[in-house]
Design a binder for these strands. Structure first.
Lengths: 332, 332
DNA sequence: GTGAAAGCGCTAACAG
DNA sequence: CTGTTAGCGCTTTCAC
């Protein structure tokens, strides 16, 4: 199978490479006749332009990288899918880049800037921490989704689109308390960071305090099925908690399994509440209660904000979208 | 933030671009001293080579595309992750390319060949059908994972690595029958294709026949949570089936939820058996029985076979790896 | 061991 | 409306 270049096409169509390039880029200044002739030849040869050459030439081509933390994270994948949908209409081309949860997405971003000359970045599911320093000198539009950069070192540089994590955590725990739970366990990440998990921990603490309770039932764990499962297994062996607020649906599933293993029923003995609202949640038995993140909205806004920055040089903006507490069977 | 080119580095290090290029590619013919000097300058500038330029020049760079059908498919994602792991040691660079389940991965492959000059392809979770014709003229190494191309038009051209779908389906249904089930429903895709789902349907049919039963309880559906759920809901409303063999774990989850909605207990009233062995399965209640695909093995073999083809010009090979029937709580 | 120079395929002035 | 020309940043002969 021969791979044709723009030059081959030009020759076959009896025009110059420039003209072919024009047709390729839908430039208006080509006569109908020439255009059709060129298109016909391209179609016959199954011509596909070389992206490397194009990328090399157009230093300013709009290429945005969507960096997703965790290929196995269903929520982030739902979100990425929705973003790519929104990006269809964008003038820019979007490429997804998965990165291991333990890897450093910021240095990866730097590499991407160097090697592919990307002109925009969306960080999906990143944490804001010291590693951000790597981005200090970068001056290309970026937006963080699912985490707010407000009040962090990135505030001025990067936009963010997220739910109000603190408030939603408050609402979640409040709901649990209102339903008679006094011994609320919380499964989350490092409560001292600047990320969304820390905000949720803070929100949970506030509400507990307001009700004369505290965050002493905090279980720090990675939010994976197996880690949350193990954490819950050892925690509930010696705990009288009657509710668990888990900072991701995936973690909640691990916790539910552990409870089941320990002979505790959900929700009769322990209520379980997750975060994210992944589709699998409502297929579980019992159906998982959750704080559903507005995936479409998150996607739409993040792509929109990035475009504003890229096309109109808009300054960093911080958007908060509404999440929804969805009470299903896993909460008593 | 300035983006440095190899030329800048050369200038700063007081050498020629050729030398920098040599260092960049770990060529042996550079003196220790020069090498160190260049490396130091590159490190100081956080130099990252432009992949477009490199890709443009090296028409024969080993770039393989891993085309994955369905970003939301947990099994395929597990598999892709494992493959990328194996690919770390490979000389070739691997890039993942997700494609919608309804899109055409074959024409996408053609485009990738044209625009990124890829030199190898791994199709993850593809179906073999008429669309393959598009690949007829392509002569680059390809391997299909999870589906066998043996006996199809692609047999000579493309390698494949998969489980013995027909046999595993036989084993699955056999296990169900052995446990006293006579009314086995099967949830799968088009039973008349050339893909793995059709093979499974065939295997199921054989065993049923051998036991004086038939495939009349076949429910054709897409193997997603919602589609399988809807299909099962309407099917079980008017069916006396006492077991369901589902051709993916995801579909099995949808079916379990539907059964639960209809007041049928799993496994007391209906046994459910899936395929794939995704990690979430053992966290469900009841724990999902499944035909577990050997993810690591599938990954290792597919990458290995592709490398054999790329580096040694090996002919297409067809590898069958062993799957394992894992009986858990969802089967009586 | 090192450098000069010729492109890879494409786009974008600049002329005509 | 169309063509000529000069690179984008890198690798790779081919000399020295």
């Amino acid at each position: 199978m021969k791979i044709y270049t723009i030059r081959d096409i030009a020759q076959m169509a009896g025009v110059s490479v420039t003209t072919v390039s024009r047709v390729l880029n839908d430039r208006p200044d080509v006569s109908r006749a020439t255009q059709e002739k060129v298109r016909r030849v391209m179609a016959e040869c199954h011509f596909v332009g070389n992206a490397n050459a194009r990328g090399l030439k157009q230093a300013e081509s709009d290429l945005v990288a969507v960096i997703i933390r965790g290929r196995r994270n269903p929520f982030l994948n739902e979100l990425a899918e929705a973003m790519l949908q929104c990006a269809q209409e964008s003038r820019a081309a979007f490429v997804t880049e998965y990165i291991d949860e333990r890897a450093d997405e910021f240095s990866r971003a730097l590499t991407l800037i160097g090697e592919r000359r990307i002109t925009g970045i969306i960080f999906v599911g990143s944490r804001i921490d010291a590693r951000c320093a790597a981005l200090a000198e970068v001056n290309i539009p970026m937006v963080f989704v699912t985490v707010s950069t407000l009040g962090t070192v990135m505030e001025k540089r990067a936009s963010s689109v997220s739910i109000d994590d603190e408030r939603m955590a408050r609402e979640a725990v409040e709901a649990l308390i209102r339903r008679g739970h006094r011994r609320v366990a919380v499964f989350g990440g490092d409560p001292e960071g600047e990320d969304s998990l820390a905000l949720r921990a803070r929100g949970a603490r506030e509400v507990l305090r307001a009700h004369g309770l505290d965050l002493s039932r905090y279980v720090e764990t990675r939010l994976t099925l197996s880690d949350a499962y193990e954490a819950a297994l050892s925690y509930f062996r010696q705990s009288d908690a009657d509710a668990a607020f888990c900072m991701s649906d995936t973690a909640a599933m691990g916790v539910m399994r552990a409870l089941s293993d320990l002979g505790r029923r959900v929700p009769e003995d322990v209520s379980v509440l997750g975060v994210d609202g992944v589709d699998i949640g409502e297929y579980l038995t019992p159906r998982l209660s959750t704080i559903a993140q507005p995936v479409q909205e998150l996607a739409r806004q993040s792509v929109g904000v990035l475009e504003d920055m890229m096309e109109r040089g808009a300054p960093a903006r911080h958007v908060t979208v509404g999440a929804e507490l969805v009470l299903r069977e896993s909460v008593r």
